[in-house]
Each structure stands twice: as structure tokens, then as C-alpha cells.
Amino acid sequence: MKHLSLPLTKEERLALRAGDCVLLSGTVYTARDCAHRRFFELLDQGLPLPFDPHGAFIYYAGPCPAPAGKACGSCGPTTSARMNTFAPRLLHEGLGGMIGKGEMSAETREALKQCGAVYFAAIGGAGAMYGNAIGKMELVAFPELLSEAVYRLEVHDFPLVVAHDAHGGTVY
């Protein structure tokens, strides 16, 4: 199993192929449907996003509250297809890629290819395992969205599959 550390260089992203199983560590940002809508409102007004998108990875996830002594609660991926309307524009803003579950659209795959970015699939339903692999969790934006707010997570050895690579390859 290949170990990867974020941020990934463009060369590292280009070296990944659909179907590769990897263990990913580093900083990711959570965002789901509502947070993405807010990102677009900010971009439409010419305002910056709550985090620098260049090379950043968004994790499509909304965690459970953290039990005592833990940084984060159960935190597996949500269905990525709901973010197809948002992903291409964010990739063109410089995003390094995304983590979620399930296949994404042809438009998103084309944007990944154009931008040299990569989409990883986490294993849906394995929330406890992913939550337990999060060492640190900080609120970044939109606290009123509760579990759907944007959080910065420090993840350690996330088990992932390269689902859509930067060359148009797909595991699905």
C-alpha cells in the first residue's frame, strides 16, 4: 500500500492511477452541499474562500460530534455526486482534489484531467475508522452549519482508493 502525504505535488498527483489503494496523511477540509453553496456565493462576489484552495483537498464529509478524549467523531465520506455542480469550478480555482464516495460526473472527471487533480474514494460506511484516524479538528467557517460546517482535519493514514485519476482513468 502506497503512503502519501498532503500537500501532493502535481507530479505526485499525475503519478496516481485509478484503482491504486493508498494511505493518505495530512490536512484536508470538510465541505458538503451547504458549504459549497456558500463557497459559490463568495466566489460570485469576488471574495476569497475560507481556505486557500491551491493544492487543497476537500473531504466530502460531515462528522459526528467527538466523544471525550477524541479529536473527531465518526467521519466517513458522503456521496460525492451531489457536489458535481460545484467541483469543476473549484478545481479550476486550484483545488488539488477531493475525497468522497461514489462516481462523479463526466464534467468533474474532465476538470480533474484539465487541472491535474485527483479524486479519491473513501470507503462509505467506515465512519469509525476514518474518525479514529483524525488527530486534529478545527472549525474554519460557517459554524451555524453544525456538522456541515467547514473543518480543517489532520488525517493519518486514511485508507483510500484512487477513483478518478488525472488522466481520465476511473475505477468505476
Binding site: G62, C64, P67, G73, S74, C75, A126, G127, M129, N132
Partner: peptide, 14 residues
């Protein structure tokens, strides 16, 4: 994952 959930007292899925 279910074993981890049991051990850590966490929901199996978020």
C-alpha cells in the same frame, strides 16, 4: 470498521 466502532465507542457510520 465495526470492530473499531466497538473498541472506540463510536457510531459505525457518521
Amino acid at each position: 470498521n465495526e470492530i473499531v466502532a466497538k473498541r472506540e465507542g463510536m457510531p459505525v457510520c457518521q
